[in-house]
């Protein structure tokens, strides 16, 4: 049995206003569940309001719905972290190891090539500038892409900003923090080490950052890619 627009609006109000749910992905999933379950119950002769209460009871009332939303947020964060690790791991042990070696060699080349020239050193010193430009460009592209998606889905800016960019900001911040450590903090400690060893550790830090960034971006791309198809 097809539900009327009023009944659909009641379900939407029930989830958003009466039960304070905010996560759009979860609301969409629960809306489908409520709609299908209620329409099946109505086919069997039950009234709309009774069916709604039955389904609501199955979710554990408001407490159950809110707990589910909280848990959903935790699982989504966990999913991003695990996905990122699954993408990053092959760069260290697996089929992507040659890429890591190539990045390390590239950074070593840059470091050796520009190490003696003051002006170039300040700009290119260890390839950090390239990485920072890469981060900013990717961040910009993701923001534009997300805006485009949210506009297409009829969502408002705030719901999109709070929900989807957060993992990227976290990954960006971790990468940037490691880079800054490598640039400013590591330099202080490296004075007591032989030059070759200091350079090796510094470059390893930067390579790990680049690899982590690439892996995390692949994971985010996979996670955020819409997998919607028409019936």
């Amino acid at each position: 049995m097809q539900l009327t627009p009023d009944q659909l609006a009641t379900i939407d109000r029930h989830l958003r206003k009466e039960n304070w749910l905010l996560n759009e992905d979860l609301i969409a999933e629960l809306t489908d569940h409520y709609t299908t379950a209620i329409s099946n119950r109505m086919t069997e002769g039950q009234a709309f309001s009774e069916s709604l209460i039955d389904v609501y009871k199955g979710f554990g009332w408001r407490k159950g719905l809110l707990k589910m939303e909280e848990e959903y947020g935790i699982q989504k964060k966990r999913q991003t972290i695990l996905m990122a690790w699954r993408e990053v791991k092959p760069f260290f042990v697996g089929q992507r190891t040659p890429i890591t070696v190539a990045i390390f060699a590239g950074l070593y080349q840059l470091d050796s090539l520009y190490a003696g020239r003051d002006m170039a050193k300040s700009f290119f010193s260890t390839g950090e500038t390239f990485l920072i430009i890469g981060f900013c460009t990717s961040f910009f592209i993701i923001i534009i892409w997300e805006l485009w998606q949210s506009r297409a889905n009829g969502e408002n800016w705030f719901s999109f900003a709070g929900r989807k960019v957060t993992p990227f900001v976290r990954i960006y911040s971790i990468c940037y923090a490691v880079l800054l450590c490598s640039k400013f903090v590591w330099i202080i400690f490296s004075w007591s080490l032989p030059a070759v060893l200091a350079q090796f550790v510094g470059l390893s830090l930067q390579t790990s950052t680049a690899v982590y960034f690439v892996g995390s971006t692949i994971a985010l791309y996979k996670r955020l890619s819409p997998k919607v198809k028409a019936a």
Partner: peptide
Amino acid sequence: TEGALYPALHKLEADGLLTTETQVVDGRA
């Protein structure tokens, strides 16, 4: 119960054991 099913599905998805695909049916996802 729905209160047990969905958290279990979300956890299995986060663990990488399940993947999801959204299809538009009767105008809803």
